[in-house]
Design a protein around this nucleic acid. Structure first.
Lengths: 258, 258
DNA sequence: AGAGTAATTCAACGATGGATGAAATGATGC
DNA sequence: GCATCATTTCATCCATCGTTGAATTACTCT
């Protein structure tokens, strides 16, 4: 017994049997398909189509019918596998979140266990945190790019920015902050968290590849230029952390100091 | 002759006069209202309601009916004033964009004309660029906060991140970059633009006040803490610019240098 | 005072939204 | 070889969507 059965149980005797209507016209293309391997599983077809569309138009800008049309699949199948539209979105979001999160934890652990000569640095930790995502973004193909565009939208939406992001990403971020704290013993947590906030904004916007910088710079910069991002983002962010989190560099610019 | 007349002209004789239906039931509450001053104009009521809802749910997550219901106004009135849903959104977006853009240009001009003793600094320019928004965010009330939440979503959406943001914000950004270039004669444009990109992400996410950092820090930080942002954002960002744009500070972290 | 115009509401249109019950059909296990 | 199960499609439900034509009422100008 799989999803359908569960669903039917949940919805026991909800409606009257409304459908005394027309007789069925038995046509082709119905029922369980021949198990022809090699083709993508329908469930994955739906996920992939949804990923593309959500990346471009956001959750509310996409209809389930658009997704299933792109996947060449019946509408009902999306509900069969994912129950609701929201369930489909969550499935898209989860699929890759698990992967980068694991890679990130591993990267930070490895860096801390074995930093280069001279010991661990702020830039080193930031790099370890960024690298897995950067790598997927640069070489993971359209699927990963679409996924990162979705993350950017979720991160910047009040409705989801709080809970959805938290559930999936908080542990990794705490791991990063632990690492940074270990090499900045004097840093206050409040400074570390705010610095991460700025990091988060810069990161998600950049990987979202909105095309904004291309236009702004009249084509001088390209959103998709991985080398450009690779050589600048970590240094930029590390400099910010150094400035904000190391007390000696803090200079109150007029405002009161908390 | 105002909007309605223009609209009717545009749609000359488009449809057959479909409506041989029921007779009108003349009730209260119709037609042009008595000119009772002191109350908000209906056009503004619609704009305000739309601003709130767009901030929370995004363009596609809001229906025109929700907006007019919150504004206590008939649906048709929204189309009377703004033609389409998109027109309504643009009106919301434009209303405040004009204000901050003007203030920002003025702030940067003034800073460059009269920096403190010691001359202009990177941090000074950044501060001049941020201050008008910061001020509105901190003291402008819910309207401005909602507006900035909308900006964050637009900025991070591929569909609009390119064109919509460009049309309204590019001139100010170029003004900022001109200022920065004037005190960093050796800086390459490509570095300045990429640095701005990181600034942009940090800025829009922070002002969007998604509540993310509150949860992440277990309540240690509050999204709405203006003093915390005021004392950290400009230094963080200025440090990043210094690091990326001043050649002597550039150190290639393994990747190839463009 | 009457004609014209601006602002507001009513009532509907056609399309489409998410969702689901039931039929169909191949695979699986006994 | 037959009953059960998992997967897929068909056909539809009902609510709601953006948008509009026309009626209605108040204000403005002559």
């Amino acid at each position: 017994m799989t999803r359908k059965a569960l669903k039917r149980e949940r919805a026991t005797a909800r409606r009257k049997p409304i459908r005394p209507k027309g007789t069925r016209t038995p046509k082709r293309n119905r029922g369980r398909p021949a198990k022809e391997d090699g083709t993508e599983l329908m469930r994955d077809r739906i996920l992939n189509a949804a990923e593309e569309l959500f990346a471009e138009h956001g959750f509310d800008g996409v209809t389930v019918r658009q997704v299933t049309r792109r996947a060449n699949v019946d509408v009902a199948l999306a509900h069969y596998y994912f129950d609701t539209k929201r369930g489909l979105f969550d499935a898209v979001f989860l699929r890759r979140a698990a992967i980068i999160n694991e890679e990130r934890i591993k990267a930070i652990d490895e860096y801390q266990a074995n930093p280069g000569p001279g010991g661990a640095t702020i830039e080193g930790f930031i790099q370890a945190f960024l690298d897995p995502v950067m790598e997927r973004w640069a070489t993971g193909g359209k699927g990963w790019k679409d996924y990162l565009a979705i993350v950017a939208q979720v991160n910047n939406t009040p409705k989801w920015g709080g809970e959805t992001m938290a559930r999936y990403f908080d542990p990794v971020i705490h791991r990063l902050i632990d690492g940074l704290r270990s090499i900045m013993p004097g840093a206050r947590d409040i400074d570390l968290y705010w610095s991460y906030q700025f990091l988060s904004g810069a990161l998600t916007l950049t990987f979202a590849e909105t095309g904004r910088i291309d236009r702004l710079s009249s084509g001088l910069c390209r959103s998709s230029d991985e080398a450009a991002v690779r050589s600048r983002m970590a240094p930029y962010i590390a400099a910010g952390f150094r400035c904000v989190c190391l007390a000696k560099n803090r200079k109150p610019p007029g405002g009161k100091q908390p």
